[in-house]
Design a protein around this nucleic acid. Structure first.
Length: 665
DNA sequence: CGGTTTCGCTTTTTT
DNA sequence: AGCGAAACCG
């Protein structure tokens, strides 16, 4: 299909900064890929000087795949297509010393940084306060606020405590030669701001920038973009303020307007033609989002015909809701030959998946769950990754603590106490303390031997990982620690053990893939750093056509499905009570809007009258968002089925006919 | 030291 | 109701 006039204009415009306001389903990825192809074909910019920045690895991979289909393979490979965080990592790796990091530095995951902070806050700080403190620190970092300023501006006691924790946290992680996710943006920004030479180098290196999901940029990312683009303003930002759903982690949709102020010559192109959804679905979406204040008003339209109006299911409780939704899916698969993979169940919070999983399992409908307790959170995966982190960066205390006695080396609390005391008094890392003669001398011969074996192992593998084949080093490590035996001994039964070992193998396979895809000079620590940026979402390459997709609304952004079930539309859930308390109604509405606009052909909205919470029954009111969609635009189904008896009979006839036909085959 | 039990807390979203 | 962390026992 040819580009529509607005898309074509966005692709063609190369003379200055461009903002593309791309409504849901308006073909924004296509605009970006076409534009990259155009830049290359015109000879406007060399491929290795074009960078397309996304927010998730998944989006980056998808983009790369689509660009590769449009360009010759070797050309596509020279493009930079990655997340903001991955770009930050690249900048840091080149000049780590300038921000106080040494070679092989670690990237802490969320759990590591939470654990580190727990140590620094007053003992006995409850988990929710810990979480809030961590969140605050993240917001400060992304807003470019240093610990001193956070402390000076702190309003209440809790914020002051968090600010003090922030200062000590930064000291602590830098002592471990580590950084966290937020530092991957904050540190490169500080570097580019302070060092003109480095800045000039990167500006030369990245001559044209394309930023996807621009409405999700935070203060740091925006400043990074401006620094890289410089006054030339050679960039295209693509975004949709109506789909800004990451405000809670510091995203600033105001960055859309900021662009207008900072680049007065900014050109704006609006994409309103939707190629995804039937008209009735868009009508509902437009009605809902119309209740938000919108600086850039858009009205989506579609040529796909009106289609069916969205259905609203009122259910008794969460089990009933799951029952009805799943029965509806089964109905679709029987009567319309819909593939299960063309159905998606979308919800506000991960915990809502449970009843749906159950109902699907009861009916033997295959499903695929995004998120949840996943691969990179598995104990065995974290163990191995911690070993690899320690190998690359012996000062990584989190990794040290995780693996020092896993598998068991009889190095328990007492030994650790000694090591920690020495590390404290001499101001070194735990690993270094474990090498110190005073520490070793104070241990029983057996423990001393064990500790020496451990440190020798880490150093030995480290040497091989930096010089030789990184993958061989990984395999040697797993051999040396007898990890397989350990897992078999730990696991409840044979099956569980196989599963865990399989996870370990998959981790190694990931490293192998990264190694083959990357620079052959990559060392083990390079690979581990890149792996640290991967999330569970990135593994979901294998969700097939045959599986109903279950995911949160956040995870659904950017995806589309023929049949969408948006469930749990209740006050307190969507909109979420906590979000409302934080003045987040508009963002919750956008979240619902994102859910609705995922649907291509049919959309079903559901809510319950009561729901179990913490084991207690709780009455639920239908969401205000349901009330905001006029009755004339939806079909309400109150109890177990269609209110209309004729429709109900018809539906049963359809069902029987479909069953008969299936049996006949 | 390691495994089991009990308690207490949880459910917003994630690079 | 279900899970993880601390407490407790062998």
């Amino acid at each position: 299909m040819p580009l529509n006039p607005q898309q074509a204009e966005a692709v063609r415009y190369l003379d200055g900064p461009l903002l593309v306001l791309a409504g849901a389903g308006s073909g924004k990825t296509r605009v970006i890929t076409e534009k990259i192809a155009r830049l290359v074909a015109d000879g406007h910019t060399a491929p290795d000087r074009i960078a397309a920045i996304t927010f998730t690895n998944k989006a980056a991979n998808e983009m790369r795949r689509r660009v590769a289909g449009r360009l010759k393979g070797e050309v596509a490979e020279r493009l930079t297509i990655c997340t903001f965080h991955a770009l930050g990592l690249r900048i840091l790796r080149q000049d780590a010393a300038a921000v106080g990091l040494r070679k092989g530095f670690s990237i802490l995951d969320a759990q590591d940084s939470a654990a580190m902070l727990r140590d620094l806050l007053p003992a006995g700080t409850p988990p929710d306060r810990l979480e809030r403190a961590r969140h605050l620190i993240g917001l400060w970092k992304n807003a470019g606020i240093a610990p001193e300023r956070a402390l000076a501006e702190a309003g209440d006691e809790f914020v002051m405590q968090a600010a003090r924790g922030y200062a000590r946290y930064q000291e602590r992680i830098s002592a471990c030669n580590a950084c966290d996710f937020d530092d991957l943006l904050a540190m490169p920004l500080a570097l580019l701001e302070s060092d003109g030479g480095v800045r000039a180098g990167w500006r030369e290196r990245l001559r044209y920038l394309l930023v996807d999901e621009y409405q999700d940029t935070n203060a740091c990312q925006y400043r990074l973009l401006r620094l890289l683009a410089g006054s030339r303003g050679a960039f295209t930002a693509v975004g949709d303020d109506d789909q800004s759903i990451y405000g809670w982690r510091g995203a600033r949709p105001e960055n859309l307007q900021a662009l207008q102020q900072d680049y007065p010559e900014l050109k704006i192109v609006t994409l309103e033609q939707n190629y995804r959804s039937c008209g009735a679905i868009l009508d509902a979406a437009n009605a809902l989002i119309g209740n938000n204040p919108r600086p850039f008003e858009k009205r989506l339209w579609s040529q796909l015909g009106p289609g069916e109006p969205p259905a609203v299911l009122s259910c008794d409780d969460d089990l009933h809701e799951a029952e009805r939704v799943v029965s509806e899916i089964q109905h679709l698969t029987f009567t319309r030959r819909v593939k299960p993979g063309h159905c998606a169940i979308l919800y506000r919070g991960n915990h809502q998946s449970r009843p749906f999983e159950q109902a699907l399992r009861e009916r033997n409908i295959p499903y695929h769950l995004s998120g949840g307790t996943a691969f990179f959170d598995r104990a065995e995966v974290k163990d191995v990754l911690s070993y690899l982190r320690l190998v690359g960066n012996p000062d990584d205390n989190s990794a040290f603590l995780r693996v020092i006695n896993t598998p068991r080396r009889s190095l328990g609390a007492a030994t650790l106490e000694r090591i920690a005391a020495h590390a404290d008094s001499s101001g070194t890392s735990l690993f270094e303390a474990a090498l110190a003669p005073d520490v070793r001398g104070a241990l029983a011969a057996r423990h001393e031997r064990q500790l020496a074996d451990f440190t020798d192992l880490i150093i030995g593998i480290g040497d091989r990982g930096e010089r030789g084949d990184p993958l061989a080093a990984v395999r040697d490590l797993l051999d040396a620690i007898d990890y397989e035996d350990w897992v078999r001994g730990q696991a409840r039964d044979e099956k569980a053990a196989e599963k865990r070992l399989n996870n370990v193998n998959e981790l190694v396979a990931w490293l192998e893939r990264l190694y083959r895809a990357g620079d052959p000079r990559d060392t083990l620590s390079d690979l581990v750093a890149r792996l640290a940026l991967m999330t569970n979402l990135d593994r979901e390459d294998e969700a097939g056509d045959g599986q109903v997709r279950l995911m949160t609304l956040h995870a659904a952004k950017g995806l589309e499905f023929p049949h969408v079930f948006l469930v749990g539309l209740e006050e307190g859930l969507l909109p979420h009570a906590q979000a409302l308390a934080e003045d987040g109604e508009a963002e919750e509405r956008r979240l619902a809007y994102v859910g609705i606009t995922r649907a291509q052909r049919t959309l079903t909205l559901s809510h319950c009258r009561k729901r179990r919470r913490y084991g207690e029954w709780q009455d639920c009111e239908p969401s205000r968002f349901l009330a905001e969609i006029p009755d004339s635009l939806v079909r309400r189904e109150d109890r177990d089925g269609p209110a209309d008896p004729e429709r109900s009979r018809q539906r049963r006839r359809d069902h029987m006919a479909a069953m008969r036909q299936l049996l006949a085959e």
